[in-house]
């Protein structure tokens, strides 16, 4: 990882749909102010937001750290949720374990992880059942 120009940390509250997205919104605004290209800002915002929503839906919240470096933006989403049983299945577009309530909020369509992969350059998932999941997303700046 290159030396971070700016390091940010956020706490994501569990099951709180009203505040979900605040962290991603803050990062988006900061990147915009730093003058990064709109396409990069958009990719960071969407992939982080999907991760943030996943934390709210599946994982009783968690912590997000964002390191903005000269070469890349690295987002680490760490939760102490139930873990992902079958990563291959979770990566399939349309596969979801979300509740009816989550679906009624406009999410839970099984696109979270596929979207995070689509909008990032690198994605790594470390998960242990009953312990938690850490998703690392890297979006290169050049």
């Amino acid at each position: 990882m290159d030396d971070a120009v700016l390091s940010l940390k956020y706490h994501v509250s569990p099951d709180d749909f009203k505040t979900a997205g605040e962290a991603s919104s803050d990062v988006k605004n900061k990147l915009k102010k730093m003058g990064l290209s709109p396409e990069i800002v958009r990719r960071v915002a969407i992939s982080m937001y999907e991760g943030e929503i996943n934390m709210v839906i599946h994982a009783y919240g968690g912590e997000i750290s964002v390191d903005i470096g000269m070469e890349a933006v690295t987002i680490v989403l760490k939760d102490k949720g139930p873990g992902i049983k079958d990563i291959d299945k979770a990566m399939e577009a349309g596969y979801s374990t979300a509740s009816e309530r989550v679906r009624s909020m406009g999410f839970g369509a099984g696109m979270g992880l596929p979207n995070m992969k689509k909008y990032s350059d690198e994605m790594k998932i470390d998960t242990t059942i009953g312990v938690g999941t850490t998703v690392t997303l890297i979006i290169r700046l050049c």
């Binding site: 406009g106 369509a109 979270g112």
Partner: peptide, 24 residues
């Protein structure tokens, strides 16, 4: 009405028409 689809498919800056009504 599905925000997951909006996040994965939208290009450019369209008008979003939706029946879903929440902060998300």
């Amino acid at each position: 009405d599905l925000m997951s689809d909006v996040l994965s498919q939208v290009k450019g800056h369209p008008l979003l028409v939706t029946g879903l009504c929440n902060t998300q």
